[in-house]
Design a protein around this nucleic acid. Structure first.
Lengths: 181, 181
DNA sequence: CAGAGACCATACTCGTAAGTATGGTTCCGT
DNA sequence: ACGGAACCATACTTACGAGTATGGTCTCTG
């Protein structure tokens, strides 16, 4: 017996955040509109302004949600039982590929919003620490700098896609490149 | 009726483009508002809509202006009488630092506008070709890939600023890094 | 000097998205 | 059952920026 009570929607605060999260991935922070989300959820603004004081409160909730998810992912990498540092770096790459669209949206958002910038900065700090640790484990010199360049080259791909004439390197090749000579 | 003989405005189409150009650097493409520019130029919208059909025409003029300026700069590098490839790369770095703010604004713009994306892609193609040429001159392997990673790491700095605890490397150190072993 | 065209000001319309006011419905405890 | 709180719909107001309509003023030219 499904509760097909479609007549009365009833949406929770969490649902709003989730919908906004999806919309963030699809069209970025400016694409998050109250009316659009309401239509997607099958309700109206009346619902929104009961759960939230205003739009900025939704956005802050979004940042919170992202920060937690992100922290969990990084901790999952850190405490994951993967002894080989090289393999750990590969997992970081894989994770990055999964959340690419979301990550991109967050970084673009951070370009014009101090709160988002702070959240991203915080997440990057943890990520850089993790990468640096892997590099030092591999006895790579200048680990902090290499980690930073590695991450920058990665997110730089958001701004500069791979040209057609340039063969896109495999993740392993990229890793080897930043591991140096 | 004394008409307070203020210095009568009179603004050219070029002035509008120039003002928009400055505003682009300061607050990005969404920050380019007709009224704001008009106030800045000491005129009103009436002037604007005489010189331009609409806002998009101004933006296209902006892209044109940028493309030309950019082409000139790259050509200046290409035909500059600098035999040493290493020195040429250094000049590219220096140029990048000069136009960083503008470059950043253009790339952010390109994230949500196909025309801007096309302009940036075109400019990048030329730039990558130039860098690749320098690298091959230096007998560096995988020149195209390295050139791409170099540029990505550079623009990645727009999205990930240097953390406080990480000593920012000198331009020469960065160059050495991408020149490999 | 007269008129035409270039240039601009003023005062609107219009579309959009955020935010508000208010009342209606459902649920839940006593 | 009933009264209040949770939840939502409807209709409204506001703010803002793009775009339009129209007429005024300057300048140049015949």
């Amino acid at each position: 017996m499904e509760t097909a009570k479609r007549a009365r929607p009833r949406v929770s605060r969490r649902d709003w955040v989730e919908a906004a999260y999806q919309e963030l991935v699809r069209s970025g922070e400016p694409g998050i509109g109250i009316n659009a989300l309401a239509a997607r959820l099958g309700v109206t603004k009346g619902s929104f302004y009961w759960h939230f004081r205003d739009r900025s409160e939704l956005l802050r909730a979004l940042l919170d949600r992202w920060a937690h998810e992100r922290t969990d992912e990084v901790l999952g990498l850190a405490f994951g039982t993967t002894p080989d540092p090289r393999e750990r770096l590969r997992r970081i790459q894989a994770l990055g590929a999964e959340v690419a669209s979301l990550d991109r949206a967050m970084r673009l958002w951070a370009q014009h919003d101090p709160d988002a910038a702070e959240a991203v900065r915080h997440a990057d700090r943890a990520m850089l620490g993790h990468i640096t640790a892997c590099l030092t484990d591999l006895a790579v010199p200048d680990a902090p700098l290499r980690a930073l360049l590695m991450l920058r080259a990665w997110v730089g791909g958001y701004l500069i896609p791979t040209p057609e004439d340039t063969p896109s390197a495999t993740p392993d090749e990229l890793l080897d490149f930043f591991l140096g000579p």
